[in-house]
Amino acid sequence: MTLHHDAPPGHHRLEDVRERLWEAVRAGDEYRASAVVLDAVDSGMDAETALLDVIAVVQARVGAEWAANRLTVAREHAATAIHERVIAALAHHPDHRAAEPGGPRVTVACVDGEWHALPARLLAEVLRLRGWRVDFLGAHVPTPHLVAHLHRTGPRAVALSSTFFSNLPTAHAAVTACQAAGVPVIAGGTAFGPDGRYARALGADAWAPDAREGAAVLERGLTRTGDGAVDQPVDCLPHLADQEYTMVVGNRRQLVKETLARLEDRFPPLRGYTDRQRQRTAEDIAHILDHLAVALYVDDPDAFRRFLTWTADILAARDVPTRSLDPALELLSRQLRDFPRARRTLGSGRDALADHLRASNTPRPGHPV
């Protein structure tokens, strides 16, 4: 008997399985976690529900707990590893139907630089359940190797996954290269925006918000109508002609160095930081620059605003002063005074950050606690 959300007994059972899996992964107990999921499948839960409505939901909870600073990075990694092992165990369960020899072939991979492979793995397993022959290439797949694999195997489509917004330029190169090889691309993952806006901007043939919809899109079929020519980024993103993205990326190291040096005058507590704290601050500035650059790449200041408010929440959860963010943004704006789009994006981000901190009852940027 398959469990459905609209059936009250099934709903309670689903919540119970999620909670027991959460307790197991939080305790770091791989064997208990596997037993929870496999027992649920033995009791009638279909494997796709176990993947997407149990494991994926609990994994999202893991991420939320890390963001709230209730799980360390190490425990978050351990929980993710446990989920990967549970998925592997589920893949060998008798209810996990193997693909028929003549089923369509698909490649599932993470873009170069993307280490969060679990969302792609979930899609791969769902597609296998639905009869596809899946080549799952895992995390951090260099584009030339991905394309070589496509030439060798000739899949019907390739599914590209990325979680980090900062990976979008790399994802764009991968999309273009796959299409030039004659293979249509479906994009997925939070990097592409909540509504897939960046997948469309970068020319992907389709986008899906989750594994279930991704499988449905692939089942309906993708077609690549282009002539196989390799487009340059400026062809579909004409704003790149102003070279602001290229200049920010090319001067990243110097921008970080100058901002860190000048930040001592704007944020005096920095003078008392240890070498490790200063290194972390430099990494934070670099992270800000990476997201600014990609916001310039896709010409979307709203993406930068979302990143800054998210960063403020992450810092606040870790008791790190958020009031250092605004001086850093101001210093970057001064250094980028000859780049109008960059300055507008930074200004918009500063306004959004001030509003967010005010709404969160956090001291405004630049004001002492």
Rank of each mutant, 00 (worst) to 15 (best):
H4K: 06
D6K: 06
A7G: 03
P8Q: 10
L14A: 13
V25R: 15
D29M: 08
D29K: 13
L38T: 10
D39T: 15
A40K: 07
L51P: 02
I55K: 06
V57L: 09
Q59K: 11
H93F: 04
P94H: 06
A98C: 04
W115E: 11
W115M: 06
W115C: 06
R121T: 01
V126F: 05
G131D: 15
V134W: 10
D135R: 08
V147T: 14
H151N: 05
P155L: 01
L160T: 04
S161D: 12
F164W: 15
N167E: 07
Q179M: 08
G182L: 10
V183P: 02
V185A: 09
I186F: 05
I186A: 10
I186P: 00
G189D: 05
D195R: 15
A199L: 03
R200L: 06
G203A: 05
D210P: 00
A215C: 00
G221C: 06
L240Y: 13
A241H: 12
Q243M: 09
T246D: 14
Q254E: 10
P268V: 09
R271E: 10
Y273C: 08
D275Y: 11
T281D: 02
I285L: 04
I285V: 15
I288P: 02
F304W: 02
D313P: 01
I314L: 08
A316S: 11
A316F: 01
L325A: 12
L331D: 05
P340V: 03
A342T: 09
R343E: 09
G349P: 13
G349N: 12
R350N: 01
D351G: 03
A352T: 12
A354L: 08
D355A: 09
R358F: 11
T362D: 15
P363H: 13
